[in-house]
Design a protein around this nucleic acid. Structure first.
Length: 479
RNA sequence: GGUCUGUUGGUGAAACGGUUAACACAUCGCCCUCUCAAGGCGACAUUCAUGGGUUCGAAUCCCAUACAGAUCACCA
């Protein structure tokens, strides 16, 4: 079997959006599943849309995701250059277009764009462009060429018959040739059209599997016509269903939808994002959802890519991100959370203890700030929150409880979660309260919140004895 | 409008002619519990867009209809 070679061919127009990244992921998985090559090609022929630094975003994103490319502008390879604008400078597209003319598979067209446009408007929907330039004989063509009349090169398309091709996801697609127009290959400015450049590049780079969005499904037959004209082998096609924002709209950066870097900035992990988007339009054969990139490579199967657009569900991503946070190596978790913790709390408190307290509560890193801000100080709160149904507490009861907590803790020497818990639990038993009744007012006093990470005792441990006593006294003074 | 493609719960989805239509997220209960989480358990589609057909039997095959998306450029 020939070596699998897939490519990711983004235009450097800004942030990496999710649908694009998923296409890259699938292309990568398809290649790596069979030990093939994954190639990065930059399609920067649309100079108007170029964005400064966008190429670096592409490199950076692939790196963060672990989608290592075997060939590309930065790492080189045997099929370069890998930047389309550089390839263009070498004149290959023009060369191949002219070659097709020589082969009688394409022709010069001197029609003016405005004229065709006018015809189209007049004819309306039923318009089909029949190129009068096909009737020109060689002498006439030569004359026009010699006088420097601008021209494009168009592919010759037979109006008879049908062309069909097989897509690995959508199956066999057949279209009638008469619906295919004689597409422009080389524009009058000498630039290739996107479609043409794509075919040339894919062929020269020996791409075996073309992975792309399904918006290309209807134009695929056109691509095939070019391959056939050259007598080249047609690659396998894998058209992926779109990633949607809602039932009607695709996810796109145009709508301001979250890009990959937006997600990272919100505290999502690249691994989790990758894992999640793999499941958008593809389902594993086993009953499981958490996959590392390596595991995805093994489990991935083109046959299980779906055909319908999948709505991007941030809630599920958030859940999955939490799973990654909870399952990861503790040291890595500390390292990841440290900046978020020190940013809101400084480095006076033990950040590992804080990290432990929020370990199974954090889903995305950016939640941390709100979760732990009370360590800096208790915000003024309404004594109303001392009311708790389960603890059966109210402000009045809380006052007596806090006094009991205070005396118990003031005499405590060894200060850690266990010792604090033990002494308070004993006190609770002694006074005939349930633990929750003893703890809840303390939690409120220490955090100013009805809901806080860890528990009252974990918070006390982190705050330290002095601050704990001080906060209890402060709370008592307000009751 | 022509052409192409699609349609299983709020969401991602499984199923490949015979199951009580998996599983996961979300939601709602209960349990656990020093709050909240996490974890455990349970509920949640009499039904697979609709209407016909084929078949002993259909979410699965066929045909229509509806709806949705894509595409019809010297844009990528």
């Amino acid at each position: 079997m020939e070596k699998i070679r897939t490519r990711f061919a983004p235009s450097p127009t800004g942030y990496m959006h999710i649908g694009n990244l998923r296409t890259a992921l699938y292309a990568y998985l398809i290649a790596k599943k069979d030990d093939g090559d994954f190639i990065l090609r930059i399609e920067d022929t649309d100079q108007g849309r170029l964005v400064e630094g966008a190429v670096n975003i592409i490199y950076e994103t692939l790196k963060q995701c672990g989608l290592k490319h075997d060939e590309g502008p930065d790492v080189g390879g045997d099929f370069g250059p890998y930047v389309q604008s550089e390839r263009m400078r070498s004149g290959i597209y023009s060369e191949y277009a002219h070659k097709l003319v020589e082969m009688g598979k394409a022709h010069y067209c001197f029609c003016k764009e405005e004229d065709i446009e006018a015809q189209r408007e007049k004819a309306g929907d039923s318009f089909y462009f029949v190129d009068p330039c096909k009737l020109l004989d060689e002498k006439q063509i030569k004359e026009k060429l010699d006088t420097g009349e601008p021209y494009v090169i168009r592919l010759n398309v037979e109006q008879e018959g049908t062309t069909s091709f097989n897509d690995e996801v959508y199956g066999t697609i057949t279209v009638e040739n008469k619906t295919l127009d004689e597409m422009v290959l080389l524009k009058s400015d000498g630039f290739p059209t996107y479609n043409f450049a794509n075919v040339i590049d894919d062929h020269l780079m020996q791409i075996s599997d073309v992975v792309r969005g399904n918006e290309y499904l209807s134009s695929a037959p056109k691509y095939n016509l070019i391959y056939e004209a050259f007598g080249w082998d047609i690659p396998r096609y894998i058209h992926c269903p779109p990633v949607m924002k809602d039932e009607h709209q695709k996810l796109s950066k145009r709508n301001g939808d979250a890009s990959f870097q937006d997600l990272l900035a919100k505290g999502y992990l690249p691994e989790a994002v990758l894992n999640y988007i793999a499941l958008l339009g593809w389902a594993p054969s086993e009953d499981r959802e958490i996959y590392s990139l390596d595991e995805l490579c093994k489990a991935f199967d083109v046959k299980r890519i779906g055909t319908t657009g999948a709505i991007f569900d941030i809630d599920k991503l958030t859940w999955m991100n939490g799973v990654y946070l909870r399952n990861m190596d503790l040291d890595k978790y500390y390292e990841l959370t440290r900046p978020y913790i020190t940013e809101t709390v400084g480095d006076k408190l033990d950040h590992e203890l804080i990290a432990n307290a929020i370990h199974d509560r954090v889903n995305i890193l950016s939640e941390i700030a709100d979760m732990i801000s009370f360590f800096n100080g208790v915000q003024p709160f309404d004594n109303e929150i001392y009311n708790n149904k389960k603890a059966k507490t109210d402000p009045q009861l809380s006052k007596t409880i806090l006094e009991a907590d205070l005396t118990a803790l003031e005499n405590l020497d060894s200060w850690n979660n266990d010792s604090i818990f033990t002494v308070l639990a004993n006190k609770a038993a002694e006074l005939g309260y349930k633990n929750i009744t003893m703890m809840y007012p303390l939690q409120v006093a220490l955090s100013g919140r009805s809901v806080a990470p860890g528990g009252a005792t974990a918070i006390a441990e982190i705050l330290g004895k002095v601050e704990t006593i001080s906060r209890i006294k402060d709370a008592l003074s307000r009751l």
